[in-house]
Nucleic acid binder design. Structure first.
Lengths: 208, 208, 208, 208
DNA sequence: TATGAATGAGTCTTCATTCAT
DNA sequence: CATGAATGAAGACTCATTCAT
């Protein structure tokens, strides 16, 4: 799955902590994850966490930085490398989330979305970084849509559509998680495809 | 004569607990809310909670039941009463969420969505009720779409579109919360409207 | 020793905590005393402390209240009951501290003085109560000096002398503790007696 | 030409640690001061402290040595240089403490007295050095009183009076700190002056 | 039903100290 | 002499839950 990279051989203690926290925050949420679990998973001594991160919140911030830094190399770059049609690149992003749902039996979701809803505004610095993560995604989708050029209506607000794509992604993952079924996610993607067909007039094949 | 029952002054202890828990779970999440806070807000004695609810989870389940029971009287009925155009009824639901975002300065979100992402599958019975809540919403949207009859393409899967509407609602609220701005939510709704225009052909599509 | 009363038979949990904290704060200081030690000594479960006192500081405040409430019944009243000469009542107070020094091998000191120097202004609410404790002592010494009437010079500032008596008490205890010897304390008391002889002209016997 | 050595710009690491610890132990106490704070204030690397001092206690002992070594050059010598009347030299010492109270807004106190009461007998080697510090002070006061020669009664125990002076100093500082007011300290000094007037008969006693 | 005291495992965090380089 | 990462026991405090009355 795109979201997890196997830990390299001699990774630093700090990075081991970030990766362990990333996985646990993703699967159990921020509040439910204890520092004890993190240091155990990272195979780090309990006090060492404090050496690198002043608080649990600072560790979360580092995790959110990790997501920002790894969006391109882990998710965007492979898509650019393998898919040339810009609109299909957008749907490839969605498909990445679909694969994550499958791999986890529809129990996990988007780490950014999860944390956004769990934390609300209780950790303002985290909220800012979550917004920046969304912004990073949005910019890439926007870029892909720009690359579609005249295939999309001239006066279509590409940035707004990019936001819409993220909306469909997040709302779909949420419902699939609630229902533990791929259906709601797939339904959302199919409707989004239909929308794109109507916008581009490129019928018929629903899947290229 | 008692034509008007005063707003529940002597609401039962059990209900006071449910309403207090509902509000706190909504604003702070399930984990972050302590039973001490709930009993304080409910003005109930600490030990009494356990007479009504065996565990914190049972209280959560009761809250989720409350949401299910109140979907129609609190949200659906007023919309049906005031709006006749079925498609506008759908957008009225979305507008209800918009109003909630405004009222809370974009800090809170959909209580069902929040809990879905916070809890994941850690509380399976809660997850089931969350799915049923989504199902309740979906059925009403589905009903409204059915009422639109031939205005929508014959072979359009109305249930799938209903899911899509919820998707847009949840994904939009999430991004607006992350960015603390109405823009992402409004962007999603505008795109959804465009989609409906294209489907119904009722107005010149706003895009070329 | 006057400062310790044996715990009554069915004393409340709250009081057991206060008395245990009082003794430990006295012997080891505030910072060095752990809540674990307090609950162990009080034979109370660890979480119960929190039920009665929100923080360690609140417990300290309750201890300081205890000292204020018990100054009269534990220390002043017995002196008034047994000694009629008002000036000797003043020296009886000093002698109480002397006995405490003996009983503890000159290792402990005045609990109020200890906490005053240990805490400084780090716990402002505690500092206020410490000042009030000193004030309570000062008022009783003042009262005794007033009762001495014309034996002391008419224009002698009795309140200032009362402060001076406390000064001698505290400064003497401190040096005896540092030297682990009664000598400094006794030296201070003897000089104070000489001062009173010079003020009253009541010679010769240095100890009545 | 280097007639004036600039104030120690390149002070040794060891001394930087001692001075930093001295200040922090004085203002926050021994227990409350962390080694992390000390090395930060001293601008020394965390691990380096242990090259010079095996434990926190050893650092404290070095600080107490510093106080002993600096009593004469920092406090006694300037007084001897500027004041010739031996009894006024005694009161000049007291006035030095008064100035410290003013400079710190009555929040700090005598570093030796503070540590004496905070530590009790928990660190026996420190207690010994504290006693020696008191002894150093006492000897200087004793010397000044000896210099007063026949102005004081022949059979007055000069060493005991010296102890008494320290007693007044420490007891006064303590109460001024508790009350955050110079009054208690000043009251003690005024009474001590009255005592000296009565002993020397050099001026009409201010009290009738 | 209601009360409020009691329970104890668990949370995040702190900190003196060690150690390889 | 200097560095900075590592250690692990212990600290104050939290909280869902229980229970006698």
């Amino acid at each position: 799955m795109e979201l997890v990279i196997p830990a390299p051989a001699n990774i630093t203690t700090r990075d081991r902590l970030i990766l362990a926290a990333r996985d646990l925050f993703w699967s159990a949420g921020y509040e439910s994850t204890t520092l004890a679990e993190i240091v155990k998973k990272a195979e780090v001594n309990s006090g060492s966490l404090y050496y690198f991160f002043k608080t649990k919140e600072e560790l979360l911030l580092a995790v959110l930085d990790w997501y920002m830094e790894n969006l391109f190399p882990q998710l965007i770059e492979p898509i650019i490398a393998h898919i040339s049609d810009p609109i299909e690149r957008v749907f490839a992003l969605l498909d990445g989330y679909r694969k994550a749902l499958i791999a986890t039996g529809c129990t996990y979701g988007c780490p950014i979305g999860n944390l956004t809803l769990e934390l609300g505004d209780s950790l303002p610095r985290a909220r800012e970084k979550l917004a920046k993560n969304f912004e990073g995604w949005r910019q890439w989708v926007h870029k892909f849509l720009d690359e579609a050029g005249p295939r999309l209506p001239k006066n279509l607000d590409r940035n707004e559509v990019a936001t819409f794509v993220l909306t469909v992604m997040e709302g779909g993952v949420m419902q699939s998680r609630a229902q533990q079924s791929l259906e709601p996610f797939d339904a959302g993607v199919r409707q989004l495809r239909t929308y794109f067909y109507l916008l581009t007039g490129e019928r018929p094949a629903p899947v290229q």
